[in-house]
């Protein structure tokens, strides 16, 4: 390095190599430097205001920041805000019956919106997310109800659960031909014209008109909707024959069909059950 700067008047730093290669000093613009320092100040202020340094020695966890902000607190505030909006509706729902909620158009709209999650959590696993049912599980969106589709019955069904029973008729009671004959007339929707219907005592539960009895939950045999839809490539006729042969929930036949709706009375609050009843009613089949 030279003692005297051989290139005076130039903004070099005095670092010169190979006689004339020199390092110039071109600082960034002032506004850039201001922005640079301001962003560092910002960072310091941020560290004071918000939690920043993790794993402090002495097991104190982390710096808490002067405002005491936490993500959890913010989340809880958000939830409280939502609940404040919901509170007047929820209060109204608590003081009304499901039938009254249904009559109040605005409240019913709120209920349907808020019960969607409840339905997804508690009902959709069996009945499908849109109430479309599934193999072995009833459709909630149609107009055919075993126990009745009015709002109070729906509340009762959710609260208490349902477990109907049909005895197995295969073997001793009905011959294969008789089962075949009955099943064919059921699929055609004309079971009442079959003499076996009365002769074999079907009439006792399914009624003289074959439309079922709501208090028992016996199926309507004359309409186009079947409680048990065919699975695995069988036909509707096969499915009906199976039901007649082995019954439903019949203790004497291990191959009997299983059809049980669990009770939700002890799992859900009264409010939630009301909401769900309104939701189910509004799926398309309420009566």
């Amino acid at each position: 390095m030279a003692d005297k700067n051989p290139f005076p008047g130039e903004n070099n730093t005095g670092h010169i190599w190979d006689d004339n290669l020199r390092e110039l000093n071109n600082p960034p613009p002032r506004w850039w430097m201001i922005a640079f320092w301001v962003s560092i100040l910002w960072w310091i202020a941020y560290g004071i205001i918000y939690p920043m340094w993790p794993a402090l020695p002495g097991g104190t966890g982390f710096t808490k920041g002067v405002t005491g902000w936490t993500a959890m607190k913010e989340y809880k505030e958000g939830v409280a805000e939502v609940q404040e909006v919901r509170a007047p509706f929820e209060k109204k729902i608590a003081s009304m019956s499901a039938a009254d909620i249904l009559k109040d158009e605005g409240l019913a709209e709120y209920t349907v919106a808020s019960a969607k999650v409840l339905f997804g959590d508690n009902c959709a696993a069996c009945h499908g997310s849109g109430g479309q049912g599934g193999p072995g599980f009833p459709v909630l969106a149609d107009d055919d109800w075993l126990y009745g589709g009015d709002i109070n019955t729906i509340v009762q069904t959710i609260t208490m659960g349902r477990k109907g029973m049909m005895p197995a008729k295969g073997g001793a009671e009905l011959s294969a031909e008789e089962i075949d004959s009955l099943a064919k007339s059921i699929v055609a929707g004309k079971v009442t014209e079959n003499p076996l219907f009365v002769a074999k005592g079907c009439i006792g539960c399914h009624g003289p008109d074959g439309k079922g009895m709501k208090p028992l939950g016996s199926a309507n045999l004359t309409d186009q909707i079947f409680r048990f839809v065919p699975v695995n490539g069988e036909t509707q006729l096969d499915s009906v024959k199976y039901t007649i042969t082995h019954g439903v929930n019949f203790p004497g036949d291990p191959k009997s069909r299983v059809a049980e709706m669990p009770s939700f009375g002890d799992r859900l609050s009264e409010n939630d059950i009301k909401k769900l009843a309104v939701y189910v009613y509004k799926l398309g089949g309420g009566q």
């Binding site: 997310s129 849109g130 459709v139 149609d142 107009d143 909707i225």
Partner: peptide, 16 residues
Amino acid sequence: RQPLYVMQSDGSVQNK
């Protein structure tokens, strides 16, 4: 969309 249609007891098809 869920369900796309629902069969009714009188044999008609219902859409929502």
